[in-house]
């Protein structure tokens, strides 16, 4: 009989402890990093790394250096997601060198403040959504 009682007490103690633990554990601890700014790591180099031929490499390198040294110094001027430069390199990959470049030139003329009503809005990037189709 005593054994049963002891086991009962132990079990209730354990369950009480887990109860307390669950109470305390999570909801305040989530505040620890609440003010830490979300850093977005950008990786622009994979077009260079994945290049299959010299021409791909050149376009990849152009894209990488534009993104790193020029675009990074610009204001947020492109109204689209993906941005014009990303669109250009994706367009070249999907449509080939000639049609891809032509398509990218067209994108540049579409990128202006009055583009609003013609494109869906992408909540995440807070830009107009216009992927290469």
């Amino acid at each position: 009989m005593r054994k049963v009682k002891t086991i009962g007490i132990v079990i209730s103690f354990i369950s009480f402890a887990t109860f307390l633990g669950a109470q305390d554990r999570s909801y305040l601890s989530s505040l620890e990093n609440t003010f830490t700014p979300q850093m977005h790591e950008h990786h622009y180099s994979h077009y260079v790394k994945d290049a299959k031929n010299p021409l791909d490499f050149i376009f990849g390198a152009l894209y990488l250096s534009y993104k790193t040294f020029i675009s990074s110094q610009d204001m947020e001027s492109c109204v689209f997601h993906p941005s014009c430069s990303t669109y250009a390199i994706e367009s070249i990959q999907k449509k080939g060198y000639i049609l891809g470049v032509i398509n990218a030139f067209d994108r540049l003329t579409r990128c202006h403040p009055f583009a609003g009503p013609n494109y869906p809005y992408d909540e995440k990037s807070q830009r107009l959504y216009d992927p290469v189709d």
Binding site: V101, N103, F105, L108
Partner: peptide
């Protein structure tokens, strides 16, 4: 010239 050709293609699309 790039913009011109791009615009022709873009108009079609």
């Amino acid at each position: 010239f790039g913009f011109w050709v791009g615009n022709i293609y873009g108009s079609y699309q």
